[in-house]
């Protein structure tokens, strides 16, 4: 499946200039930080928000694989509510990790408190 996907990604590249490709490759998801190039080489996305962040790049790929672009099947009975808040959590956990790595401990502890607040809100 991964090989088939790589092939699809290659095919998609045809018809785009090297410059356009390089630009698309460098785009990064603001939530998880993965670049489109990284996705292309691994065949795996980094987080749910990638489907939004890389919409331009993924759309032709998805059409190629499935021949369709709209889900018609089952839906969760409870929808994710504010999906904004959900992806925010992914982003903040990443920022917290980076803050710790860069020894910005004050920022890290702010983020930690914020994350906990959202997690408790969601749990209740």
């Amino acid at each position: 499946m991964a090989a088939a996907l790589a092939q699809q990604v290659q095919q998609m590249a045809i018809g785009q200039t090297a410059e356009e490709l390089a630009h698309l490759d460098q785009q990064a998801c603001p939530v998880c930080g993965i670049t489109f190039y990284e996705f292309r080489s691994q065949g795996r996305l980094g987080c749910p928000h990638d489907y939004v962040a890389f919409q331009t790049q993924l759309e032709p790929l998805i059409m190629n694989v499935h021949g369709e672009s709209e889900h018609v099947g089952k839906r969760p009975r409870r929808t994710p509510g504010s999906s904004e808040q959900r992806t925010q959590l992914i982003r903040m956990r990443r920022e917290m990790k980076e803050a710790i790595e860069n020894e910005h401990y004050e920022r890290a502890s702010e983020l930690r408190d914020h994350i906990r607040r959202i997690e408790t809100e969601q749990a209740s």
Partner: peptide, 24 residues
């Protein structure tokens, strides 16, 4: 699903790590 919130997109359905599984 009663206990957790799945990653779901209004148009694309259930979101998966590989786009070959997206939708259902």
């Amino acid at each position: 699903e009663d206990k957790v919130t799945y990653a779901f997109h209004e148009r694309l359905g259930y979101l998966t790590a590989c786009p070959t599984n997206v939708g259902t």
